[in-house]
Amino acid sequence: MMDILNIFLTDSFWAASLRIASPLIFGVLGALLCERAGVLNLGIEGIFVVGAMTGWMAVWMGAGLWTGVLVAALSGALFGLFHAILTVPLGLSQHVSGLGITLFATSLASFTYRTALPQVSSPPRIEPFRALDIPVLSELPFLGPVLFQQTALTWLALLMVGVVWWVMDRTALGVAIKAVGDSPDAVNAQGLSVMKLRIGAVVAGSALMALGGAFLTMSAFDAFFFGMVNGRGWICIALVIFASWRPGKALLGALLFGMFDALQVRLQTEAGALVPGQVFLMMPYILSIIALVVVARKAEYPRALLVPWRKGQR
């Protein structure tokens, strides 16, 4: 028992929590933007894969790391645009379109990877983002390793929480995005374009999701391999409900999740002899379901989520 309490006292535990949370922060913020505008984006899992693959591949082909990040965001935006066209002007089922995008994006990324690298036994590596090691600050006890020895992408994730919060809560654009997810008719009556707002939000949200994927291949690991996203996108869809579509709570949710995942890995080494390791591997998914069930009754979904809107029709 003391051993378990000791885990919480190590800075490596808190550093790992933030590291594990980083891709989820991007993903939850992305899902938040889409859903606030009234569009469920189940393409998230595939967009993670695409971001992971394209960002890594750009760097592998010789581009700089930040160019890779940009490539990942743009390819995510492209798939987001595809989902947006299918669901917003065409008004097709958001569930089916999103799953279609996930399957399409995943298979396209896998096909591209395999075609570019037909026969590789071990996935080629890139030089990923390094820990920032900010002078003085990273020497601080506790805070140094936890905050100031993370990579730039973790900082970008934290920065995006602020950006999304500022846009949603402090700008007219944010008010319009939230309104378009709640009552598109009112937005239309104001002379704003429901279509443009929704498409824009889905494209921007999908770019964020792709950054979550890019984090995996360019910061957490240094290579792309099949199945590496492993449900992280779906977990974000659960977390955004848990976060009641608020950026601050999204950060909290992702951090809590990161903590449980980091704890799970450490418990596995502590109690590995007593319980099969798989029990711990299941925990993140089980926790996501529990989190969802706990908040489900109180969850105030954006009122026009899943509802297609056509001018002049109700």
Partner: peptide
């Protein structure tokens, strides 16, 4: 509980696959 079945049924896929691996080992 009103929990969205899309997310729960998706996440269960991962749980069940890990469970099957556990049983097979």
């Amino acid at each position: 509980f009103g929990a969205d079945e899309v997310v729960t049924s998706l996440l269960l896929n991962f749980i069940i696959l890990i469970f099957v691996q556990m049983m097979l080992e």
